[in-house]
Amino acid sequence: MSSLVLSYPRHSLWADYIRAIGGAVLCGLPLLLFPVERWIGLVLAAGFVVFALFFIRTFLRQRTRYILGPDALAADGPWGARVEWDRLDRMKLAYYSTKRDRSGGWMQLAIRSAGSRTVKIDSSLDCFYDIVEQAALAAQARDLELSHATRANLRSMGISVAGQEETV
């Protein structure tokens, strides 16, 4: 298997930038425009910090290339990390949705190999399925215990990990 160089699509990054700037403006504008009661100001400032962190995270994503290879997944960027498949010691696949019926959400894969930083990628990344499949194979080879939610999410993507069927 040759290496694949992946990145987040431009439209997904722009959507996140708009969210981050929109949220920061909504929380920050009242602080600039009105004399605000102290504790209300603290709540708004906390909201502003969340959106500022979200903006930074989006910026880091924009500057990061993910290189998927047969041996490892490397996040090449300002906050880079490398996850080696044969040393994988953590894998979590979560599904998030902001809708009440949990439709229209996104998956997030968190993987880490011994001694490295955790790499988190969202399903909007190109070839997300291939990365998850590769991670699942590595988890199977390493006999890693996966959480109930991770197994359910893998099944929903049509990926099964031997030895990780419904057990108690």
Partner: peptide, 20 residues
């Protein structure tokens, strides 16, 4: 409640739309 649910049980529900 949404944050707790997302942290406790981040499973996809069958029938819900999957990935983006």
């Amino acid at each position: 409640s949404d944050l707790l649910l997302a942290a406790l049980d981040p499973r996809i529900r069958f029938g819900a739309a999957g990935e983006k």
